[in-house]
Design a binder for these strands. Structure first.
Lengths: 343, 343
DNA sequence: CCACAAACTTTACGCGCGTAAAAAATAAAT
DNA sequence: ATTTATTTTTTACGCGCGTAAAGTTTGTGG
C-alpha cells in the first residue's frame, strides 16, 4: 500500500492509468467495464487507498443507492431482529441501508422521513407506528419516494405491504387453545401502541364466534411501549381478582405475555399444562425472549426472515422496474404455532 | 404553503428576498444573522418547502455535522437502550446521529468504520466488540476521526473512554451475596463475546480473595451473542450435575442469567430467598428484561443514562475544543445494587 | 447629522464527481 | 487485413452549495 494520499478521482486516474469517466463507470457498476480494465483498476485500488467522495457522488444523482429502513422502536427485539435481517438483504444487493428508529413517537417518525428525504434514497422500507402515525404526511412521503410498508399498514400508502396474516395466526392459536382446554380470554392494551393490535382483537372475536364461544376481552390501561410493564401490572390485577370465566389467556403479543407470566409467577400461580397448573397463557410473535420465560411461552411465530426478505425484494423490484407500479400488492405470511410450556 | 417547488438555494434567495450567501450563513447557524433577517428567512421557510441539499452542503465541508454511533449488537436491548439515549443527546446539540450495529462481527465493525469515514463525521462514539475487534484498524481510525469509546476499551485507542466500573460493581454484588448467604460461583462464557467479561472475571476473583473465599468459575462453551441460549444450556447442565460447592450463582451478565433462570425453572429448582428455595442467582447490567424474569433478577445496574450522557458530552467538548486533546480521560461509573427476588 | 462598525449584497470561483459528445483505441468477426 | 462493434479517452459542462473579496446598506452612538 503506497501511502501517497489520493485526494480525488482525478488523482486516482493519474496513478491507475485509467481515465476518470471510466473510473466513474467502474465505481457505479464494476461489471460495466471490460474485464481487463476492471483488473487494472482493482490492482490500483489494492495499492492506493481511495474511495470516491460520497457527497460528490450523490450530489448529481437524482437518486442514491441509499435505502431507508424505519421501525417504530429499535429497543424492541422484534424490530431490531427484523431490521437486522432487512439490512443484510439490502447490503447483498449493493445498496446502502440507513436504519432509523422512531422511538415510539409520531413526531420522530415524521422527522425520520424528512431526514431520509434529504438523503434522496432510492427507496424506503417503513414499519409505521400505525394508529399513532401521521397518516397524511406518510401518504405524502410515499408519493415522493418509492416506499414499501411492512409490519403495519397505514391506509393504502406505499407501493406494497408485507406483513403477517393476523387472522390466520390468531385463528390458529385460538383453535389450538380451544381444542386443548378452556377457550381463551384475550389480553391486550385498551389503546394499543403497536399497530397490529386491532387486527388481532378482531381476529380473536371472529375466531371465538366461529367456534361458538363467548369472547372475553381484558383491556389494560397504559400507553407507550413498555409492554412488559403493562402486562405485569394488569396481569397482577387479573390474577388477584380471579373473576375470569376461563383459565386461559391469549395475549395480543409476547411482550405483554412476558409481563403477565412474571405477574403470575410472583403471585404463586403455576402456569402451564401440568396437573399442578391452574392457568394457561399464550402469546403472539415468537419474540426472541419468549423461549426463556417461565414457563416457556407458547405462541405463534411471525416469520421474521420471510417478512424481511419479501419486503426487501419487493422494494428492489419496484426500484429497478422504474415503472410507476401497476397495482399495490399485499403479502401476508402465515404464522406457525410454537408449542412450549405455557399453554 | 405555496406549492411552487424550490429547487435550490438560489431560487429560495429569489423568493425570500435574501441573498444566497446570507442564506448559507443562516442554514449553518441561524444565530449568525441579524434577528430581523432571521425572521424574514423563517417567514419564507414557512411559505416555501425548502431545505438545503445535504450532499452539496457536505461536499465542501471538511467535516460534517454527522456523529457516528456504533454498537456491537443492536438486537441486544442493553445496546439499543444506550444507543437511544445517545441519539437524543446528539440531536439536542444540533448534530445528526448515524447509528450502526456491528452484528457481533469484527468485519462488520470495520465495515461500519469505513462507511462512517465516507460520511466525514465530526466525531464517532464507538462501543467496540472488544476482544474480537481488529485493534490495529480501530486505532488507525481513531487517529483520523475524533472518537470516544464507550462500554469497552480497545487498548488505549480513542480520545476518551466512558464505561462502568466493573471492579466496583462486581465487588458490590459479591459482597452482598457473601453477606446474605453462601459465597457465589461465577458463571460466564469460556471465551466471552462481550468485552467486559474478562474484567468481571478478574473482579470476581479479586473480590473472593479479599473476602477469604475460594472462587469457583463455571465456564460455558459457546460463541456468538445468543447469551440466553448459552445460559440456558449450561444452566441445565449445572442444575443437573449438582456438584457445585455453593448454592449461589453470580452471572457475568443478565442475559446469561435470564437463560440460567429459565433452565432452573424447567428443572423444577426454586430460585430465590424463600425457605423453599434451593438456589440464588444474580446478574449484572440491569438489563431491561431482568425485572420480568421468574423470579425477578437481583443484579447490579449500569447507569445507562450517565454513560450515554457523559460519552456524548465528552465527544462534543472534544469536537468543539478543536485542540488535539491534552490527555486521554477515562470515566467509570459505579454500579448500583438492584435487589430483587432471585438473590 | 456624521462616523463607524456590523450586516448584507454582488460577484466569482471551486469542490469532486456525473455525464454527454466526439474522437481514438481495442477486440471480435468477416 | 479489413470491417464492425465495443470500449476507452478527451474534452467540457453542470450540480448545489461554501466561501472569499469588494462594494453597499443598515443600525448604533456620539
Amino acid at each position: 500500500m503506497d501511502d501517497k494520499k489520493i485526494r480525488n478521482m482525478e488523482e486516482f486516474a493519474a496513478v491507475s492509468g485509467i481515465s476518470r469517466p471510466t473510473l466513474s463507470k467502474f465505481f457505479n457498476d464494476p461489471s460495466s467495464v471490460r474485464a481487463s480494465t476492471r483488473q487494472r483498476i482493482e490492482a490500483a485500488l489494492d495499492r492506493y487507498d481511495y474511495r470516491p467522495n460520497l457527497y460528490a457522488i450523490n450530489q448529481n444523482r437524482r437518486l442514491t443507492k441509499n435505502i431507508g429502513i424505519i421501525v417504530p422502536y429499535l429497543a424492541d427485539p422484534f424490530f431490531a431482529e427484523i431490521a437486522r435481517n432487512i439490512e443484510e438483504h439490502i447490503l447483498s444487493t449493493g445498496y446502502r441501508p440507513v436504519l432509523l428508529g422512531s422511538h415510539g413517537s409520531p413526531d420522530q417518525e415524521i422527522e425520520n422521513l424528512e431526514n431520509l428525504r434529504l438523503l434522496k434514497p432510492a427507496g424506503v422500507l417503513l414499519a409505521p407506528l400505525g394508529r399513532a402515525s401521521d397518516q397524511a404526511r406518510i401518504a405524502a412521503f410515499c408519493e415522493e419516494v418509492p416506499t414499501v410498508l411492512f409490519d403495519a399498514n397505514v391506509g393504502s400508502a406505499g407501493l406494497a405491504f408485507v406483513g403477517s396474516n393476523n387472522n390466520q395466526s390468531i385463528d390458529l392459536i385460538v383453535d389450538y387453545l380451544c381444542r386443548t382446554g378452556e377457550p381463551p380470554a384475550f389480553f391486550e392494551m385498551k389503546e394499543p401502541s403497536n399497530p397490529n393490535a386491532y387486527k388481532r382483537r378482531h381476529a380473536y372475536l371472529a375466531a371465538m364466534e366461529r367456534l361458538n364461544h363467548t369472547p372475553h376481552l381484558i383491556q389494560a390501561a397504559g400507553e407507550g411501549w413498555e409492554f412488559e410493564e403493562i402486562g405485569f401490572r394488569e396481569g397482577t390485577r387479573v390474577v388477584r381478582d380471579r373473576n375470569l370465566p376461563t383459565d386461559t389467556i391469549l395475549c395480543s403479543n409476547d411482550r405483554l405475555a412476558i409481563g403477565f407470566l412474571s405477574a403470575a409467577y410472583e403471585a404463586g400461580i403455576r402456569v402451564g399444562l401440568g396437573t399442578d397448573c391452574t392457568m394457561r397463557v399464550a402469546g403472539h410473535d415468537d419474540h426472541p425472549f419468549s423461549r426463556y420465560t417461565c414457563p416457556t411461552l407458547t405462541t405463534v411465530s411471525q416469520d421474521y426472515e420471510a417478512i424481511a426478505r419479501k419486503s426487501a425484494e419487493k422494494l428492489m423490484n419496484l426500484i429497478e422496474a422504474e415503472k410507476p407500479a401497476d397495482s399495490r400488492e399485499e403479502t401476508l405470511f402465515d404464522g406457525r404455532l410454537v408449542m412450549r410450556g405455557s399453554a
